[in-house]
Design a protein around this nucleic acid. Structure first.
Lengths: 230, 230
DNA sequence: CGATCGCTTGATTCCGATCAACAGGAGTGG
DNA sequence: CCACTCCTGTTGATCGGAATCAAGCGATCG
């Protein structure tokens, strides 16, 4: 068992603990054109799903759990590009290799589909599949375009925007259950954990949110958050 | 002829001066599948090409000149998403409206193609066109994914990275002729003009670059820049 | 029960923003 | 030609927000 911890910055902040396990046939949550062709796999918390620059042989759909995709610079700084929640498809590439790494944040069940299968289908028969792939890519592009605005936002605006984004994606009525750590949030928003923590406090003091448990956040005043979101 | 101009945003830093002119038949620089179907138009410096949330009826290919795409927040902060140089295609959307605004930075010649034409072609005959569209979208996604790393970079790293990016795109051997202002660079990198200016000075002092004219930059030491790019 | 981990809170530092003045062209008109 | 303005970019001084450094705290777990 790896006891290597507490290195913190200088390298992987959340070292992956488990490599791929063999495909574990399991019930898919919903049906569509694509996910019929794949097997369901399980990943433990912090398990690596794939690494940057690895050949992109598969495409993934989250059944349960949460996934982060990220890049790390040589000196250990990490940028999380996206969080993927149940229903989301990720790992879709047109190039030969993955442009990001992917890790399970929590325990995950994920449908894994062979890329070649999809591509062949898109090429031969059905150009509907090709359009579906294009649609997914474009959707991801729009998300990232929106996210690029964080560059010109203050810490408060970033955190407020993040909470609204999460609230939209997990329609659990007023309360947001965060699957990811403060460090993950920080690396997604380009802030430090301390700043994320302090900013949540500010928002709580301003009565915009309530934080009954660390990972559970109630949005008390969405319009205030939206105003902050700039 | 539409004369509707100059409504623009609340506090335009670079107000658009000219609306669309009528299509001006002109020689295309290169041939491909797509640009055969379009007309060439001219835009003056700072002319608006399209606005955010306007219906995305066309798709654009730069023949000459440079284009910026951007979003502005209510309070006037601007984020430039991309610079488009000759050969680049932009304005491609899967949704019904543009997610960014687009303006000519310099005088531009641009091929304008009806979106419906391309889409119809992609749907009916040729699924090669659909794949080409997908490829373009994916390419843009990768660019933006790479750009998202600026969030965790210092001013020096951002500017160094920008210069290398531009040098790659304009293969003019060692020297980079910048078509955009310092303000544009700043809004692309999430910095201020002052910081961009100072950082260029630092890089010059460190003998990594040379700035004989304001818009002309010589990369003296690329490996140093690459090291800074982190 | 200590131990570890994830998070919070406080003190201080520092990078880049802001405020402010100035410099160098480019264009204009006398 | 020069005097003028306008515009873009540079440079300097100061400020401020977030990073960094450093404890401390409260869960969860062996």
């Amino acid at each position: 068992m790896l006891t290597q911890t507490a290195i913190r910055n200088v390298s992987p902040r959340q070292p992956a603990t488990q490599p791929h396990r063999g495909p574990v046939p399991s019930a898919a949550s919903q049906t569509g054109t694509i996910e019929l062709m794949g097997a369901c796999m399980s990943f433990g918390a912090n398990a690596e799903i794939y690494g940057e620059n690895e050949p992109a042989e598969y495409l993934y759909k989250v059944v349960s759990g949460t996934v982060r995709t990220y890049k790390v610079l040589v000196d250990g700084r990490r940028q999380i590009g996206a969080f993927h929640l149940p229903g989301d498809i990720f790992g879709l590439e047109t190039g030969e290799v993955h442009t990001f790494s992917a890790e399970a944040i929590t325990e995950c069940k994920i449908i894994v589909i062979k890329r070649s299968t999809v591509m062949a289908l898109a090429a031969r028969d059905n150009n509907d599949v090709a359009r579906q792939m294009w649609g997914l890519t474009a959707r991801e592009l729009r998300r990232l375009q929106e996210h690029s605005l964080v560059l010109i936002k203050s810490a408060e605006e970033r955190v407020a925007g993040f909470l609204l984004e999460m609230a939209d994606r997990v329609p659990s009525g007023g309360a947001v259950e965060l699957p990811m750590s403060r460090q993950d949030i920080a690396d997604y928003l380009g802030l430090t954990i301390e700043t994320v923590s302090r900013t949540l406090k500010h928002l709580e003091d301003a009565a915009a949110i309530e934080v009954p448990k660390r990972r559970r956040i109630l949005l008390r005043n969405r319009s205030a958050l939206r105003r902050l979101n700039a």
